[in-house]
Design a protein around this nucleic acid. Structure first.
Lengths: 248, 248
DNA sequence: CGGCGATCTTGACCGCGGTCATTGCATTCC
DNA sequence: GGAATGCAATGACCGCGGTCAAGATCGCCG
């Protein structure tokens, strides 16, 4: 059983002031946001925003994981982004979505009405600045990912992905075992999603994972749980890129 | 001879009001911009902004082509973006550049002092909004590119790239030949750069180009000049993606 | 004019990774 | 308990595209 695939949805509402993205905002901005905030919950597999839709809201994730993906006419799929708790999703100032946004796990979302948020943005420079900086960071991350897909082999991409998971403290925890401490990471998605994210196939992911295990870089506890045994080795495998540093 | 590799640098200054990006701005915003604008010229191959630099300016391109690229520790390179005339380059609100920005051809740039521009942004909501929308479009384009690299084969990527060139009217012109009209496109960069952009190698680019020619989809006039003979065929090859629609 | 260097092209080879098929191992449902 | 379902793992095969090497083409410059 993978607890990350079945988050327990608590009944407490969004606490926007506690979201890292909004923390730096002045109190009145947060209050204004809170006034246009509605909670929505989705079950794994449900579509939040469909490709080419004109959604009425954007928001941020309180709990769960969303995947942004595109399905090509011939059926091939690609995930352009995984969004975890505290990430923003959707698109202000833009009519149509260019991707499907689906719940990869059960999810609870704090949603802002699009119109109301755009009004707010126009009247609140601090908020608009926050969004600008946020989008700039996303752009950087997207370009890092372009490099990942453009000139790295699958094993390197997998290593980079695991490093990103390591850096997200919510997904990683230090585990003391014997004399040396390991980093435990939970992979919150299945092999197929992971393959679509890394631009390859589930079989290749499987082989790459076990290759890392054979080299002693990771240990496989179960298909969704690994221990990082050799962090420097993993970093070397990833090609020393500084992944995820933009998204602390 | 490839005239696009050696643009003649005219002596006239930037006419910001005529740049499509700025056209919608109120006159006073444009005037303010013009006041902090300096022209810089670069020769092909020169570095405009180095990876990890903290550049003192950003700007937009009056003439020429810039490439944003990253060189990995092991020497592999990847181009994350080609910037042509009227595109913005560089990064407001961010200390360090994550990429090299180099002149792929001789280039003339309208540059804004970074500090002055950031001051301006804080005081001019219309300008800040323009930047936000601009960055959102770049993010969309980057994600399209992620899909291109993540789940399309080289011949499809090449086809998509040619379609983007077609849609940039400056690079494409209709040519009447006999009864049917062709679209002529100039490829402003060499095979090696193109390979780094499309995530492959120069040899593979060469083969893919000639494969398209063998199928009668394009005609090769010289290594930098093609005629599109079968636009629907090219679109089908590219997988019906709507490339470049974000950047009209 | 002739040699030289850069770029593009083409061929031969082969390895990474895509594809297909099979197996194993859970969990769920009858 | 046994059948059914879903995901992961593994093996066999092979094709796309990376790599290396050798021509081809063109512009440049002595």
């Amino acid at each position: 059983m993978n607890h990350l695939n079945k988050p327990t949805l608590t009944s407490k509402e969004c606490d926007l002031a506690r979201e890292p993205v909004f923390r730096k905002l002045p109190k009145e901005s947060i209050d204004a946001l809170r006034r246009i905030c509605r909670v929505r919950t989705y079950r794994a597999g449900q579509t939040v925003i469909a490709d080419q839709d004109e959604p009425g809201f954007t928001g941020c994730i309180a709990e769960g994981i969303l995947r942004m993906q595109k399905t090509l006419p011939d059926g091939r799929q690609h995930i352009v982004g995984l969004l975890v708790a505290h990430d923003m999703f959707g698109r202000v100032l833009h009519r149509r979505s260019n991707f499907d946004i689906e719940a990869a796990t059960d999810a609870r979302l704090c949603c802002f009405d699009r119109r109301a948020l755009e009004d707010l943005l126009s009247r609140d420079p601090a908020l608009e600045r926050l969004f600008l900086v946020n989008v700039l960071d996303e752009l950087d991350a997207a370009r890092e990912w372009i490099i990942l897909l453009g000139c790295r082999r699958v094993s390197e991409r997998l290593a980079a992905f695991l490093l990103i998971l390591c850096r997200r403290s919510a997904d990683a925890e230090r585990v003391v075992s014997g004399s040396n401490d390991r980093i435990r990471v939970h992979v919150p998605i299945g092999r197929a999603d992971l393959a679509n994210y890394l631009g390859t196939r589930a079989e290749t992911i499987s082989r790459a994972v076990h290759a890392l295990a054979d080299e002693g870089i990771i240990a496989i506890l179960d298909p969704h749980t690994f221990d990082i045994l050799d962090l420097p080795g993993l970093i070397a495998r990833a090609g020393n890129g500084d992944f995820g540093l933009n998204r602390p």
